Simulated scan of single mutants.
Amino acid sequence: MNEDRKITELSDLRVVVDRIEGRSVCGMAVGDSCEITRSSQLRIPEGRHFCLYALAAALPLLPAMQRPMDDGDWLANEAEIACPDPEERLIMRVERTGLSRIPTEELT
């Protein structure tokens, strides 16, 4: 590898169903999760699913949560995201699970 290649470090994330305060119409349960690794690779455990609408609620925040944050950044201390279904009241939390080092030119 060329020593001059720039490397970007991004956190790998896990989005986990933390609690369901209403009724689960999407079939997810507490503990269900998906992982985002290497910037954009989505993984869902075999035999499970992750609700598209719950994931859509989390997507706008995930790129910012992958990047290093200052301690005072509000997003560094806020890890909960709500599904948009008002009947379900499904609450997810985002966890950092590791760090990916990716050549910058490979990022989309």
Rank of each mutant, 00 (worst) to 15 (best):
S11L: 05
I20R: 04
E46N: 13
C51T: 09
A79G: 03
R43L: 08
F50H: 10
M1Q: 12
E106S: 06
E78V: 00
A64L: 07
E105Q: 08
D4K: 11
Q66N: 09
E9C: 04
S33E: 14
C34F: 13
G22Q: 06
V94H: 14
S11G: 02
P103V: 09
L107G: 03
R23C: 11
G31P: 07
E106M: 08
E106R: 08
G22C: 10
R93W: 04
R89T: 12
E35S: 10
A54L: 12
A56M: 06
T97M: 05
G47Y: 02
R5K: 14
L10R: 14
E21T: 04
M28R: 04
E78H: 11
E105N: 06
H49F: 08
R23H: 11
D12F: 01
F50A: 07
R48L: 04
R5P: 01
A57Q: 13
M92N: 06
E9K: 13
L10Y: 10
S39F: 01
E106Q: 11
A29S: 12
G47H: 02
E46C: 03
T8P: 09
L99V: 15
E35Q: 13
A57I: 06
S11I: 04
P103T: 12
I20H: 01
A58D: 11
D18M: 04
R101M: 05
L75A: 01
P45I: 02
E95V: 02
C34T: 07
S100Y: 05
S100L: 06
R89K: 15
A57K: 08
A56C: 02
M69L: 15
C26K: 12
F50D: 13
R38D: 14
E3Q: 13
S39C: 01
G98K: 05
M92Q: 11
S11C: 05
L61E: 10
A57D: 02
R5M: 13
D85W: 10
R93H: 13
K6Y: 02
R38T: 11
A54N: 07
E9H: 09
Q66L: 03
S33H: 14
S24V: 04
D70I: 00
E78G: 00
M69I: 03
G72M: 06
C34W: 11
G22N: 11
D70R: 01
R89M: 12
K6V: 13
E95F: 01
S40I: 06
R48P: 00
Y53V: 07
K6P: 04
V94I: 15
L55Y: 09
I36Y: 13
